[in-house]
Amino acid sequence: MNKKNIAKYIVLLVLVPLVVLLGAVAFDDKKYIFVSACVAVLSCVPFFMSFEGKKTSTKRLVLLAVMLSFSVAGRYIFAFLPHFKPVTAIVVIAGIYLGTESGFLCGALSALVSGFIFGLGPWTPFQMFAWGLIGLLSSLLSEFLKKNKIALCVFGAVSGVLYSLLLDIVSTMWYDGVFNPSRYLALFVTALPVTAVYAASNVIFLFLLATPMGKKLERIKIKYGL
């Protein structure tokens, strides 16, 4: 195990529990939102570190930047349809065709770049975490999702719902300071139409884009030897 790997494990196995412990002891278990934001950022750090340490080829680097800009530009392009956004679909495609690391980074950095443009806020660390996780999961299931289009659409819908569930937890903690189940339920119910549109947009975009975009990515990978 080299130095970089050790640093990664230190972040995951020492810093994350330390932050949680600190939150529970020093802040009386009251500052859930801050502690969870710290954990969300810290869990992204090992990926950033491994990306930094590796000799990733320039082509991969640029390809990642392009996928990122697609997911963010999609928000502009589809601005006329509220909540109907291709971000998750692009992140899933990046995860399936470009690998675990690119999938996670595409998700996490999409949230960051969106933040640069549309305004950073307390939700940014959680968006980074949630989209990063979606990219990671899709890359782990890539062989399965590549072949089975129905599974891909189901994955899109489920990830849309999970994303909303996670960000509703954040809003609950943000408005109450603590996790309040009745507030969570109320938020979830009022957000149902948005969640439905969001999940549907994931399914539609994945259905329309996954195969053609995947083919293009595969073609580029073969043509230029990535």
Binding site: F51, V66, S69, Y76, L109, V113
Partner: peptide, 18 residues
Amino acid sequence: SPRLATVLSMALRFIPLL
């Protein structure tokens, strides 16, 4: 993190281009 900063700044440059 110079590599990440490169990716981010390239992405920011690609957005208006796209």
